[in-house]
Design a protein around this nucleic acid. Structure first.
Lengths: 193, 193
DNA sequence: GTCTATATGGTGATAGAC
DNA sequence: GTCTATCACCATATAGAC
């Protein structure tokens, strides 16, 4: 049996932030609560990160890396062009099922809304998430929609973003399935034309 | 020429809140800024509304009423069943074009994200907006999708929410048009089946 | 060198005194 | 309507513990 070793303060802070911030709210979670969760003192947080915003930014960068990896796996596992395009929705199911990254809806969009005047560092992570989505969806749309790949990619991005926003509404009940149906209809409409 | 009459303090506050809160951010806008914009003192705000949250709630109720009215007009003006279903997107274009209600994306969803622990009063306005959307979209889906009206209504709600969330991302460029295309493909897919 | 504890200044929301 | 007080939260500084 492996001895459970206590992580360094920096890692405990990142884990606590990831566990709490996007589930309970970035701004509604006081720094003191993160400190208590991580069992770390205020001085340590500010020594390592410099600000709450910087801790948020670092946590978001970690989430983006994990999200990219999960999506990768689902694209590789998909059997045909349509499945590869729709893999983004299966990846979302997997990602949201991961206990390490709880989230009320979307960490990146939440940061953009809750921290509109935040340092560029934070804006840049949402921009990177959006660029990842836009680039990959365009690439995956090509075999299905040819010249109209950009239109299809835009449609899937909106369906994906809509599924996330629907979690915030609490309606419809299974937003990811609904998003997938929207994306499939859009893809089929392009294929037919 | 009509004499420009100064509105009562309560109305000046509501207008200032509507102009500023959802554009610059609900929490990032300090009460002091609203007071300056409205040319009102703090005591007046707390006498009329009791709290910043209550002012936010009242502003949201006003927005919901206006949104409902705009959507009404676009449904009435539509020529056939498909146009009536898609009227929600034209209404969104109109509503967002109205100078009185500037918004980075969606006032109701923004309130839910920025104020997750807010009094029920605020949660209830988002619930009312969602119920309005769900009920009307279900009704408007019936002639196009029959027994499958619920599925189509869910799809249009996600497409609509996705268009709003896309404003936050800054991508795609014309989210409302993309949302409308998604909704149309979904409706046609149901009609064909 | 990494971390803790404690004291302190700044700002925003709110309430009450004048 | 102004001014002041209170409270919560972000941030920094200092001094000391492992």
């Amino acid at each position: 049996m492996t001895t459970a070793r206590r992580l360094p303060a920096r890692d405990r802070l990142l884990q606590a932030a990831d566990r709490v911030l996007f589930d309970r709210g970035i701004r509604t979670t006081p720094v003191d609560e993160l400190l208590r969760e991580a069992e770390v003192s205020a001085a340590t947080l500010y020594a390592h990160f410099g600000s709450k915003d910087a801790l948020v930014a670092e946590t978001l960068r970690g989430r983006l890396a994990d999200w990219r990896a999960v999506w990768d796996q689902h694209i590789v596992a998909a059997g045909d062009d349509m499945a590869r395009l729709l893999a983004v929705f299966d990846a979302l199911v997997s990602y949201r099922g991961d206990q390490r990254h709880p989230s009320r809806w979307c960490a990146f969009l939440a940061a953009a809304t809750e921290l509109p005047e935040a340092p560029d560092e934070i804006t840049e992570v949402l921009a990177a998430d959006t660029a990842l989505l836009a680039d990959r969806l365009l690439h995956l749309s090509r075999p299905l929609a040819g010249d109209r790949a950009q239109e299809l990619a835009d449609e899937v991005l909106v369906a994906y973003s809509g599924a996330l926003a629907a979690f915030l509404r609490g309606s419809p009940r299974s937003p990811i399935e609904v998003g997938r149906r929207l994306a499939r209809s859009a893809a089929e409409a392009h294929r037919r034309t």
